[in-house]
Write a protein that binds this DNA or RNA. Structure first.
Length: 427
RNA sequence: GUGGGCGUAGCUCAGUUGGUUAGAGCGCCAGGUUGUGGCCCUGGAGGUCGCCGGUUCAAAUCCGGUCGCUCACCCCA
């Protein structure tokens, strides 16, 4: 079974037709929805300078890059995410583009890490970004695209939800609670894993790593015990800096509700996102059952373009991977039909009809029909079996008697009904 | 990087306390059926039992290592 010499690399996938059918199904939905929203597709190279990711994406990603030195002595990496490439591309040419820039891409991304459920060393990720617009409407638009991408695949508000937070709100509230600026990154890290760590451990880390005293640490944790923004609004809504953030999120929610997508989103301050470059609203999409990891994540990154040396432009976008999404579609019984099918299968009864079969087949193909026929002389029964397993909708039978009369028999494979069609019509 | 579970035909799996030619179903190929598919019947191909080593008269079976898959941790595009 295992010919050790030529095994697939761990964490990489083959896409036999049945598997490619799912991938194409997903890609088609992504492209359809992107275009519906007026986004244009772009791509970049899969290999980038290592430096593009160092300090732009944060340690987490850099530690698991597929990186090496090329023959020219350059430090390079297979792209682990698309956003830095987008920033690099726009850095060169954004000045000449009408704003806002609405671009999308479906890159194959790589990471060097042990694979597990929903996480391989390679995946495809739908990236959608709006660059050059800082209005919160752009944030709402981007989340709407992500949600519609899932809806286009048959998922509903009962299956998935977006959890939305805002780093500006979170830092304003933490500031109001007395968390010093230098303690924010460590506090974010604790908040990010609130769901996965016991309360005691979080309390400990807030004190040891973020430098909070026990009372403040407890207050911080209390903040996340009520879901949504109501607790924050009650306690800190009067403060100008917090009030302004809340007002913007209200507008955001209003936009999504106006689009009829309000059921898909909830505010959740525990959403932080690991990437270092996010600056504002951040969100993640999850399946409601909680059985899979995040399907999609994104947010606002207003400083990234200037960080890579481009025009300072605000930006907001998301990435949605094909692996977890595919698992979810499978679990919800939303897989596409991957069975083969062709329009017509042509069956010459004997060698005398072979040339005619080829002539009809080619004429039909010129008309855009998908056509198959046996590539060697076979009995009629054999040819019908081949037609059935190829998923032929109709079989065109060329027999000497009919051909002499200038007709062929066309059999509908589903109903079994047969009718005569003139050869003129077929050629 | 750490830990658990699992590797027998293309797929899903069976294989008694170690015992001689390793099985089934599905799929594939061929025939029954050189003017009609699905159903049925018959036959066939396909396996160094993941790999390497050890124990033994004898290993798919026991032991060690290794590779792979998988789940979790770490972390998270």
């Amino acid at each position: 079974m295992s010919k050790a010499a030529f095994q697939r690399l761990p964490g990489f996938r083959d896409f036999v037709p049945e598997d490619l059918a799912l991938r194409s199904h997903i890609f088609d939905a992504w492209r359809r929805v992107s275009r519906r929203y007026g986004f244009r597709e772009y791509d970049g190279p899969p290999l980038e300078p290592l430096e593009l990711y160092v300090e732009k994406s944060g340690e987490e990603i850099v530690g698991q890059l597929y990186a090496f030195t090329d023959r020219g002595g350059r430090e390079v990496a297979l792209r682990p995410e698309m956003t830095p490439s987008l920033a690099r591309i726009l850095g060169e040419r954004s000045r000449g583009l009408a704003k806002p820039i609405r671009w999308f891409s479906i890159p194959q991304l790589f990471r060097y890490e042990r694979q597990q459920k929903g996480r391989l060393r390679e995946h495809f990720q739908w990236n959608v970004d709006i660059v050059g617009e800082d209005d919160v409407a752009a944030d709402a638009e981007v989340l709407a695209v992500a949600i519609d991408g899932l809806r286009a695949l048959g998922l509903t508000a009962a299956d998935v939800r977006a959890r939305v937070s805002d780093r500006r709100l979170l830092s304003a509230v933490l500031g109001a609670l007395g968390v010093p600026a230098e303690g924010l990154p460590a506090t974010y890290a604790v908040v990010d894993k609130l769901e996965r760590e016991p309360r005691e451990r979080s309390l400990e880390r807030l004190q040891n790593e973020a430098g909070l005293d026990a009372g403040r640490a407890r207050e911080v944790l209390a903040l996340f015990e009520t879901p949504g923004l109501e607790g924050v609004r009650e306690r800190f809504g009067e403060r100008d800096e917090v009030g302004a953030e809340l007002a913007r999120l209200d507008t955001y929610q209003g936009h999504l509700e106006a689009m009829g997508l309000g059921d898909f989103m909830t505010f959740d301050l525990t959403i932080v996102r690991g990437l270092a470059y996010y600056t504002g609203i951040v969100f993640e999409l999850f399946d409601r059952s909680g059985e899979f990891r995040a399907i999609c994540g994104g947010g606002r990154y207003d400083r990234l373009l200037e960080l890579v040396g481009g025009e300072p432009l605000p930006a907001v976008g998301f990435g949605m991977g094909d692996v977890v999404l595919g698992e979810l579609l499978r679990a919800r019984d939303l897989l596409p039909d991957a069975a083969p099918s062709v329009d017509r299968f042509i069956v010459p009864i004997g060698p005398e009809q072979r040339a005619l079969a080829l002539r009809i087949g080619h004429a039909e193909r010129e008309r855009g029909r998908s056509v198959l026929y046996a590539l060697r002389e076979q009995g009629v029964g054999k040819q019908f079996k081949a037609a059935a397993s190829a998923g032929a909708r109709e079989v065109v039978v060329l027999g000497p008697e009919e051909v002499a009369r200038g007709v062929a028999v066309v059999r509908d494979m589903a109903s079994g009904e047969e009718r005569e069609v003139s050869l003129e019509e077929l050629t």
